[in-house]
Simulated scan of single mutants.
Amino acid sequence: MHHEHHCTCCGEQHEGPPMSYAPVAPPVWKRRYALRRDCLLTEDLCVVKGEHFYVRGLIELPVLDAEETFSWGVWVSLSAANFDRMQQLWDNPAREQEPPYFGWLTTELPYPEPTLLLKTHVHTQSVGSRPLIELEPTDHPLAVEQREGITMARVHEFAEMLLGSFAGDR
C-alpha cells in the first residue's frame, strides 16, 4: 500500500507517515486573547493573561527499525522566572549552556493515560532549534516510549489515530 502525506511545514508531499505532530497553541489559548496586551502567541512562546507561560518543544521518540526520530510537538508550562530567563537568552548562543527548566506538559497526546501535567525538563538547544522536552522517567507509556523507542508500526498507528488515513489511500 502506497502512503504519502502533505507536510504543513514545507508544503510538499512526502512518502510514508508524518514523523511529527504539533498543536498551534496550548489548549488554554483562545482566539480572543490575541487582542489582549497581556497575551502573546508566537510559534514558540505563549503568555496567557500575563500569568501563564508556555514554550513549545519536542518530545523525541527514537524509531528503532528506521534511522529516524518521531517527534511530538508539545507545549510546556514554565514558571514566570524560567520563562523570563528563557526569553532573555532566546537569541543568545550561550543558551545551550543553561540547565534544564522544570515544566508541566500541557498537551494532551493520544495515549491511554492522560499526558496533561506530566513532569518535564526543558532542554534548550542552539538558537533556531526548539527545546527538547525530557519526561520524568515514570512508567507512563509516553515516558517509556521516549526511553525505549518505538517502531514504524507505532508511527503508522499515530497516523491512523490522528489523520484517519493517508492522502495516498484516498
Rank of each mutant, 00 (worst) to 15 (best):
H2S: 14
H2Q: 14
H3F: 08
H3C: 05
H3M: 02
H6Q: 07
T8G: 00
Q13K: 15
H14S: 10
G16I: 12
G16M: 14
P17E: 15
P18L: 14
S20T: 06
A22S: 15
A22F: 11
V24Q: 13
V28C: 09
V28R: 02
W29D: 01
K30P: 03
R31V: 00
R32M: 03
Y33F: 15
A34M: 15
A34V: 15
A34E: 07
L35Q: 13
L35C: 07
R36L: 02
D38N: 15
T42E: 13
E43F: 09
V48N: 05
E51A: 12
E51Y: 01
E51F: 09
Y54F: 15
R56P: 05
G57E: 08
G57V: 04
L58R: 12
I59T: 00
I59S: 01
E60Y: 06
L61S: 06
D65I: 03
D65N: 14
D65H: 00
A66Q: 15
A66C: 10
E67Q: 06
E68R: 13
T69S: 11
F70Y: 06
G73T: 01
V74I: 12
V76H: 06
A80P: 02
F83V: 04
Q87N: 10
Q87G: 02
W90C: 03
P93R: 03
E98I: 09
P99V: 05
P99D: 05
P99L: 13
Y101A: 15
Y101S: 10
G103F: 00
T106S: 03
T106R: 11
T106M: 13
E108W: 00
Y111Q: 04
E113C: 06
P114I: 09
L116W: 10
L116S: 11
L116M: 12
L118T: 04
L118R: 06
L118S: 02
T120I: 08
V122Q: 01
Q125I: 08
V127C: 08
G128M: 04
G128A: 05
G128E: 06
S129H: 11
S129Y: 05
R130D: 04
R130P: 10
P131S: 01
I133N: 02
E134S: 07
L135W: 00
E136K: 08
D139H: 07
D139Q: 10
H140L: 08
H140C: 09
P141T: 13
V144H: 00
Q146Y: 09
E148M: 08
E148C: 00
T151E: 08
M152L: 05
A153R: 11
F158I: 01
A159D: 08
A159Q: 07
A159N: 05
M161I: 10
M161T: 06
L162A: 08
L162G: 04
L163H: 06
L163S: 07
S165K: 14
S165Y: 00
F166A: 13
A167R: 06
G168F: 03
D169T: 03
